[in-house]
């Protein structure tokens, strides 16, 4: 019960903390996703109340966007860019390496809840491609001091394994 209360409080905090002048259903959902990493069931109610709409309208918006998730994410969120630039620079290899290292067949959460793996259409860092992001921080050959997709694949496989084993 205590954790449930604090969850509601965190949601209320996120709702109240929106600084933009136009508070909408969408901005509220984004604020919650930023705070918690996902949209928990009570958040639908709280957003409805905060914005003066109904739970059904809020759910219509929330379920429309595939980037909202409704279950808690893993401890670390790894996003693999598969946009056109990264694709040409070897993203497929990186994706395969990461999936293999984590024992996944497609994007999703590892069974131990350590890592949520997501494909991303563009992380907006094409000049540094091929890139991934780890907990919303972009990681690429440049930041790792390496060159080429092959080296990147190895690094990513190693990186996600390390993340999973608890040392970052």
């Amino acid at each position: 019960m205590a954790s449930g209360d604090s969850l509601r409080e965190r949601i209320d905090g996120a709702l109240a903390g929106q600084s933009a002048r136009t508070v909408t259903v969408l901005s509220s959902l984004l604020a919650i996703e930023d705070e918690l990493g996902y949209i928990p069931p009570p958040a639908i109610e709280q957003v409805a109340r905060h914005t003066g709409s109904t739970i059904n309208d809020v759910w219509g918006v929330a379920s429309f966007y595939t980037n909202f998730r409704f279950t808690p994410p893993g401890e670390h969120v790894v996003e693999l860019c598969w946009g056109p630039t990264c694709h040409l620079l070897g993203a497929q290899q990186i994706i395969q390496a990461a999936l293999q290292a984590l024992g996944l067949s497609e994007e999703g959460d590892t069974s131990d809840g350590k890592i949520s793996l997501k494909y991303n259409t563009c992380l907006g860092a094409c000049s540094q491609g091929p890139v991934i992001s780890v907990d919303h921080k972009v990681v690429g050959p440049q930041s790792l001091g390496i060159t080429g997709g092959d080296a990147m694949s190895e690094h990513v496989a190693e990186l996600v394994s390390r993340l999973r084993n608890g040392s970052s």
């Binding site: 109904t54 759910w59 219509g60 379920s63």
Partner: peptide, 10 residues
């Protein structure tokens, strides 16, 4: 004036 149902997903 109820909005008891909505479009889900996309």
């Amino acid at each position: 004036g109820d909005s008891a149902i909505t479009f889900t997903e996309r």
